[in-house]
Amino acid sequence: MHGLGETSAMTVTTTGGGSSLLATLRAPRRGGQNRRRVIHLLPGGLAWILPGFIISVGLIYYSIFYAGYLSFFEWGGGRRPMIPVGAKNYLQILGDPIFWSAIFNTIIYFVAVFTAQVIGGVLFAAAMHSRIFLANIYKIIIVIPVVVAPATLAPAHIQVWQTDGTFNHILEGLGLGFFTQGWIGQSTTSLLVVTLVGCWGSVGFGFILYYAGMAQIDPEMLEAARIDGAGNLRILFSIVVPNLKAITVSLAILNFITALKLFDSVWLLTQGGPAHSSEFLGTMIYAETAGTSRNLGLATAMSVILIIIAISVSVIIQLRARERAPVS
């Protein structure tokens, strides 16, 4: 989740998750009976929904179906001929080891960034809710990576991680010169760099949500626990965190989708390299969409696969979260 982008908006949304997202998705909510009685008195609202519905559902479903259609062709775009190829694009993708390593990279990225976001977000949020000097400055420092575009920050990250970069200078300064290496340019560490940059841009978002969430926790509950002799960490992990589970679930969905659609920062940092070691679905689709030897059929087939994964995983996460969540 780079940037408070659409993803963030979604997080916000999803954050409501526990209370709002899952609740909002569970219709009809409040006072079902009452509502049924009034329902005939309510004016029709279709016209009110339509503008938003047409723009989003219209455009997006259209794009999905169009992608589905294109995925059965081989097409260089523009005035090149469109050659129907059946399921060849799909078979080619599923048989491509780079695709599977992209999936693997996505999973690694998701797990690492999600973990960092939850732990980092909770700890920072808790600290900022404690009496701390200059809390506002810390907040801004942590949130800057979230609000500034990854495209804008990528050149800075390259400067940090290149062989002659800030990180290696720091290692040398700490007497760890033997550990310096070309972080961006090695197959074994390129994914690490991309992932760390992802964590860097995500902790602040977890922080914003947990910080807002913690403000809603009843102080009396904490006081009671404290009187019972619970320590700081104990309170944090046995009372606060479970209370914010909804946020955590939302972050899980959000991060998964973010990992699936990751593009900007990877493309600008490593272009998926070296030797495809940091390839993600987003970079593969982009390369097929924008490269000289592009095949839009292959790009759209990958997109269709991406959508299927995104929808099925989010549905699974939500269903499981709903099963477990105590219905209030």
């Binding site: 390259i158 290149q162 062989t163 002659d164 070309g182 961006i184 340019g185 090695q186 390299g273 070296p274």
Partner: peptide, 12 residues
């Protein structure tokens, strides 16, 4: 040079 894979010929 050892930083050969840090980036492209341009700018590196």
């Amino acid at each position: 040079a050892s930083n050969v894979l840090d980036g492209g010929q341009y700018p590196l």
